[in-house]
């Protein structure tokens, strides 16, 4: 596939999607307070362009900060679980249990615990919703490292620390990036949960909420689209990082 095609294909898909959406609204004759159509989004974006920039930045940096936290936590706990069977057995039920809790119910708890710390709270929620796949991927990547690898490398005179740093960790990179792609989109959900459920006047979640209060459906949909665009953007950042650091794992196209 040529690079032109690689860019054109998703854009054509997007255009078809927008046309279908527009058509659906038009054929049903839905008014703006029931369902917005793509042609309403442009004016909505333009009207609130400064708010979109300001609140979009809020949401973006909080999401990225939450992700960073999730990566740090996930790598450390994943390493502990990857190397110790006991820790793996001890921590898995806890992690799974915590992950099964709907995060919307955690919002009021966090908001009460750290009252007024809106930035921190939002970052924390993004973290809580996105650390699980990262932890699991690192733990699985490390625990499935073939013992013969270790034998060969030990017989080549490598220290255990070298084996860990130069072999075990790089070997988990493909799994790690796979998990990170999931975590990126999850983190946006976390950020917006906090911004919508516990409104504090910041972030795209707040913009969505004000759209809801004033029954401005085009604004609400514009927020959703902005979130989707940011999610796609961050996803491709991860894809690029993956190409740089784990490009060797990619199958040759043949």
């Amino acid at each position: 596939m040529s690079s032109k095609q690689r860019f054109a294909t998703p854009i054509i898909a997007l255009v078809i999607f927008a046309l279908l959406w527009e058509f659906l609204v038009w054929i049903n004759d839905w008014p703006n307070y029931v369902m917005a159509s793509p042609s309403d989004l442009g004016p909505a974006f333009y009207k609130f362009r400064w708010l979109f920039l300001e609140f979009g930045w809020d949401t973006l940096w909080r999401t990225v900060a939450g992700l960073m936290l999730a990566i740090a936590f996930g790598v450390v706990v994943g390493m502990i679980m990857g190397f110790s069977r006991t820790m793996r057995e001890a921590l898995y039920p806890l992690l799974v249990g915590f992950n099964a809790i709907p995060k919307a119910t955690v919002v009021p708890v966090v908001a009460l615990l750290l009252v007024g710390q809106h930035n921190l709270n939002t970052v924390l929620l993004a973290f809580m919703i996105s650390f699980f796949p990262i932890t699991v991927s690192i733990s699985i990547g490390l625990s499935t490292l073939e013992p013969e690898y270790r034998d060969i490398l030990l017989s080549l005179g490598a220290s255990r620390l070298t084996i860990f740093r130069k072999i075990a960790l790089p070997k988990t990179l493909p799994e790690f990036f796979g998990a990170l792609k999931v975590a990126v989109t999850l983190a946006f959900i976390g950020t917006n949960l906090m911004e919508i459920v516990e409104p504090h006047g910041r972030g795209l979640g707040h913009l969505f909420d004000s759209g809801k209060i004033s029954a401005d459906y085009p604004l609400m949909f514009a927020v959703l689209i902005a979130l989707a665009v940011m999610g796609i953007g961050l996803y491709y950042v991860v894809v690029i990082l993956e190409k740089i650091f784990a490009g060797w794992a990619e199958r040759q196209e043949s």
Binding site: Y149, I152, S155, L156, G157, A246, A249
Partner: peptide, 29 residues
């Protein structure tokens, strides 16, 4: 320090080329 070990599978590192894998011992040390 006088023993070399070879296993059933090659266990080449997928991110190193052939020369890189052949010289892995020196690299790791």
């Amino acid at each position: 320090g006088r023993v070399a070990y070879m296993a059933q599978r090659d266990f080449l590192l997928p991110w190193l080329n052939v020369v890189g894998n052949a010289t892995l011992g020196a690299r790791l040390r």
